[in-house]
Write a protein that binds this DNA or RNA. Structure first.
Length: 814
DNA sequence: CAGTGAGCGAGCTTCCGCTTGACTT
């Protein structure tokens, strides 16, 4: 029997801490929350003071049993979950579920995993802060209310199985609105003028000086007039200014900034970054990767100092403490940094090595000196006009942190290739080599990437480090948003060049508006967003989260009763939900009438059907059943024309004959496909079924046939139900509806039936279909007795040490 | 997965934040 049991949230943390604490302490992990609102059902008793109905999820039952056992075998249980709202709630749920004895339970917190921090925590235990717990319960309950009342409205009004929520719906809104801004954007042209001048040094050496005019011209005529005025005039250096400048390093990584930089510098998706970081964390290489703090421990700052002193010298070091700017940051952890800054590299996969290096550099750079610059500006005047040419040169005097790391930026603005300016003096007359006026266009707003969407959400205080990646995944899974590429369009522009007193006009072309791996709203995303913003503007408001966070803060401070806060929100919200459900609109949400079919005269419309966007000829009231067709990918419902809609009814299209079978092309449940006899082949991504040719179809069919042939490896006469097949994840055995992995290093071709049967016996069967097995109807569970819980809550507060806790007890008891 | 789609209608879907593995045909 051990004396002490410490419970933390993460197993990796548990392992580290156990080392610090010695053999009198056993350290276990709760793996996050151990109890939550019941997964099914609403599970909030609104009428009874928003009483939550909690359950231990099935996959946590075993863990909870083990924790219970260990707790009862210990003298003291130390609840050491994070020091934020969620962490406090985890401690409280543990206390409740494990049935801990208040006399033998202590709550401790620490922000950094160092021996000193932990020993200090042990010396200064406190009680569970019920105000903070109540703030978490309010947060949890509010999210459940919003999600579980809003989603069914969408099922009814738009399409089944859709979802809405405080975080995801705003994420979708950002993307829809950005797309609208892009659509509404009209580029404006202006002529940018650049002159190349020759500077002659005292020794006769010549060098070129590039300078830009301090004015842009709206029209070609104006630009031309300016160039004409440059034909016979002197260019004189009127002024040379030299100013010192400096650059400072960025703060150490948080989850959000790590995701952004890994995307820009390494090309990782947000979820990729998180899983690589998770590995680094588990291997003890970095601190916790889900954090909103930019804080570094004293230990880390000192190690960085030593490292910089020894490898680069004292001049490169500067002590820095960064302030967290993110709205609603809870700072339960440190910034993301290497656990040992002396290690510049670690072992691991290529991805892990690269991400570690990035984290190491960013952390070291954050404790380094500013880079010092010298910026020189030369102004060149001409007699004929008041405009000036300006040449800018920038020289790095001291590299400082730039020696290690420079943060990337999202906008790929025109590169300013400013270097050192040639030696010149005021009054010097320059020879002009040429002057060009180039037509340039203003840039449309940029589409969001996964990482830039995360940055925006963080800026708005929406979502938490642990949910950024899952949120990005959710909005894509729900098919509100798609990650994709967009080909640019060609645009021509005019270049006027003045050289040797002659003006030459050229027309050049450039590609504009191309995008890679950016987020686009889908038709469903647009329709759902418009419906929600119109009917639930309050929830969809960008400041909704920030506003409720203020309330949660008041609850945590003990200044606001959580039930009253929820009540204030729920009344108006629920009324809006009811009226929205009752509202009978003329048309289905998102439906647009496009005109009439020239053949039949029937109305043609586009709307969201049960299976997604579709076009329809005829109306449901007609005697005759309307014709339907799924919308082809990449066509926007908002911009669709009658002509485009009618095109959908040209499918299925017969392409021709091949090996005595007809080949047709059509759009189905899983997108466009080619049909050849009984064989279905999906068209490749982005292909247009209207343009598919017979040859392309035959190619696809042959490829599919080949794949089918390769799929089959072997079969046994004695057991027709068993097949050895080749799948996406390598060879496997299919046997009576289940699949079995073949152990690594086994050649599937030489497997005998006996060997196959052994593999099958040793592995649990996996269902071939992802389809959930029909849930057996459980008898309605009797409502959890909540009275018992209540009394425990009161006990947790351990006699009124602070007035805060007493107040909280009252509110919970209500 | 399978290449549809109202109509009769039961029963299903859904949230955000804490945490990891298990596992994909």
């Amino acid at each position: 029997m051990q004396k002490n049991l410490v419970i933390v949230e993460s197993p990796a943390k548990a392992k580290t801490i156990e080392k610090f604490l010695g053999k009198d302490f056993k350290v276990m992990s709760s793996y996050g929350h151990i109890r939550d609102l019941k997964k099914k059902d609403f599970s909030i008793d609104i009428a009874n003071g928003f009483q939550p109905i909690y359950e231990v999820p099935a996959d946590k039952k075993k863990l909870v049993e083990e924790l219970k056992k260990q707790a009862s075998d210990s003298d003291i249980v130390w609840l050491a979950s994070d020091e934020d709202r969620e962490g406090e709630a985890i401690a409280w749920h543990l206390y409740e579920v494990l049935g801990l004895n208040p006399e033998h339970t202590k709550r401790i917190v620490f922000h950094e995993i160092t021996k000193n921090a932990i020993l200090h925590a042990i010396e200064t235990p406190r009680d569970i802060d019920l105000n903070l717990v109540n703030a978490q319960q309010a947060r949890r309950i509010l999210d459940r209310i919003v999600g579980f009342e809003l989603s069914p409205v969408l099922w009814r009004k738009v399409k089944p199985a859709l979802s809405a929520g405080r975080v995801q719906s705003v994420a979708v809104r950002l993307i829809v609105e950005r797309e609208r801004e892009i659509q509404a954007f009209t580029p404006e042209a202006a002529y940018r003028v650049i002159g190349i001048f020759i500077v002659t040094a005292a020794n006769g050496d010549k060098s070129e000086l590039k300078a830009e005019l301090n004015k842009r011209f709206k029209t070609k005529e104006e630009a031309e007039a300016f160039l004409n005025s440059c034909k016979s005039t002197d260019f004189v250096i009127e002024d040379i200014q030299t100013r010192p400048g400096k650059k400072s390093p960025a703060a150490p990584f948080t989850t959000s900034t790590l995701q952004q930089e890994a995307a820009r510098k390494l090309g990782y998706s947000v979820s990729q970054t998180m899983s690589v970081a998770q590995k680094l964390y588990e291997n003890g290489h970095i601190t916790y990767m889900r954090t909103d703090s930019v804080n570094l421990s004293d230990l880390a700052i000192n190690t960085a100092k030593e490292e910089i002193f020894s490898t680069m010298g004292e001049r490169y070091w500067k002590y820095r403490q960064f302030q967290t700017k993110a709205k609603g940051a809870q700072e339960a952890h440190e910034a993301i940094r290497p656990t040992d800054l002396k290690k510049e590299k670690v072992e691991g996969t290529a991805q892990e090595k690269k991400l570690y290096e990035l984290i190491w550099k960013r952390t070291i750079a954050s404790q380094m000196a500013d880079a010092e610059l010298e910026k020189t500006t030369a102004t060149i005047g001409l007699a004929t006009t008041s405009e000036k040419f300006v040449a800018v040169g920038e020289v790095l005097k001291f590299d400082g942190f730039l020696r290690v790391y420079l943060e990337s930026s999202d906008d790929e603005s025109e590169s300013s290739d400013s270097g050192l300016l040639p030696p010149m003096k005021v009054g010097e007359v320059l020879n002009m080599k040429n002057i060009t006026a180039t037509e340039r266009f203003t840039q449309r707003p940029a589409r969001y990437s996964e990482a830039s969407l995360v940055r925006k959400l963080e800026e708005l205080g929406i979502g938490r480090p642990s949910t950024y990646a899952p949120t990005i995944t959710t909005v894509q899974n729900r098919e509100y948003v798609e990650k994709g590429d967009k080909e640019g369009t060609e645009r021509s522009f005019t270049v006027l060049t003045l050289s040797k007193d002659k003006i030459k006009e050229q027309t050049k072309t450039e590609i504009t508006g191309a995008d890679k791996a950016k987020l686009f709203p889908t038709n469903i995303g647009v329709v759902v967003n418009d419906y929600l913003t119109e009917n639930f503007p309050n929830i969809l408001n960008y400041s909704f989260t920030a506003d409720v966070e203020k309330e949660f803060d008041s609850i945590a401070e003990g200044d606001l009763n959580w039930v009253q806060a929820l009540d204030k929100f729920y009344g108006p919200f629920h009324t809006t939900v009811e009226t929205s459900l009752a509202a009978k609109q003329e048309r289905k949400v998102g439906e647009r009438l496009l005109g009439n079919d020239p053949k039949t005269g029937k109305p043609v419309s586009v709307k969201i059907g049960r299976f997604g966007p579709m076009v329809q000829i005829g109306s449901n009231e007609d005697e005759e059943k309307p014709q339907f067709a799924s919308l082809m990918k990449g066509i926007s419902m908002e911009e669709m024309t009658l002509e485009q809609a009618l095109k959908h009814f040209e499918l299925p299209r017969t392409l021709g004959e091949y090996e005595n079978e007809t080949i047709t092309v059509a759009v189905g449940r899983f997108g466009p496909y080619v049909k050849f006899g009984k064989l279905f082949v999906s068209l490749p991504k982005g292909a247009n079924p209207m343009e598919t040719t017979l040859d392309e179809a035959i190619e696809l069919i042959e490829a599919k046939k080949k794949q089918e042939a390769e799929k089959f490896i072997k079969k046994f006469d004695e057991e027709p139900e068993l097949e050895v097949l080749n799948g996406r994840f390598g060879p496997y055995i299919a046997y009576s509806g289940s699949n079995y992995k073949i152990p690594k290093g086994t050649d599937p071709k030489v497997l005998t039936l006996d060997e196959c049967m052994t593999i099958i016996k040793d592995q649990p069967a996996k269902k071939t279909t992802a389809r959930k097995t029909k849930a057996v109807k459980e008898p309605k569970a009797t409502k959890e007795p909540k009275a018992a819980k209540e009394s425990k809550v009161a006990k947790t507060a351990k006699e009124p040490k602070a007035t805060k806790t007493t107040k909280a007890t009252k509110t919970t008891k209500k």
